Amino acid sequence: MLAAFVSTPSADDPLSVLEVGERPAPEARDGWVTVDVKAASLNHHDLFSLRGVGLPQERMPMTLGCDAAGTDPDGNEVIVHAVVPGTPGWSGDETLDPKRTLLSELHQGTLAEQVLVPARNVLPKPADLSFAEAACLPTAWLTAYRMLFVKAGLQPGQTVLVQGASGGVATALIALGRVAGYRMWVTGRSEEKRAAALALGADQAFETGARLPGRVDAVMETVGKATWSHSVKSLKPGGVIVTSGATTGFDPSAELNRVFFTQLRVIGSTMGTRTELEQLVQLCATTGLRPQIDVELPLAQARDGFERMLEGRTNGKIVFTV
Rank of each mutant, 00 (worst) to 15 (best):
R100Q: 15
T101Y: 13
T101K: 15
T101N: 13
T101R: 15
T101D: 11
L102A: 08
L102P: 06
L102K: 11
L102E: 14
L103V: 12
L103S: 09
L103P: 08
L103E: 09
S104P: 10
S104M: 14
E105A: 14
E105P: 04
E105W: 13
E105Y: 13
L106C: 10
L106D: 14
L106H: 13
H107C: 07
H107Y: 15
Q108E: 09
Q108K: 09
Q108T: 09
G109F: 03
T110V: 11
T110E: 07
T110L: 05
T110W: 03
L111N: 06
E113I: 03
E113M: 06
E113W: 05
Q114G: 09
Q114P: 04
Q114F: 13
V115Q: 03
P118K: 02
P118D: 03
P118V: 01
A119H: 08
A119V: 04
R120L: 05
R120D: 10
N121P: 03
N121T: 00
N121R: 01
N121I: 01
N121Y: 04
N121A: 03
N121K: 00
N121G: 01
V122P: 01
V122H: 04
V122L: 03
L123M: 12
L123G: 02
L123V: 07
L123E: 00
P124T: 15
P124L: 13
P124F: 01
K125Q: 02
K125T: 00
P126T: 06
P126I: 08
A127Y: 00
A127S: 14
D128F: 02
D128W: 00
D128S: 10
L129S: 03
S130D: 03
S130Y: 00
S130A: 06
A132V: 10
E133Y: 04
E133K: 08
A135Q: 06
C136Y: 04
C136E: 04
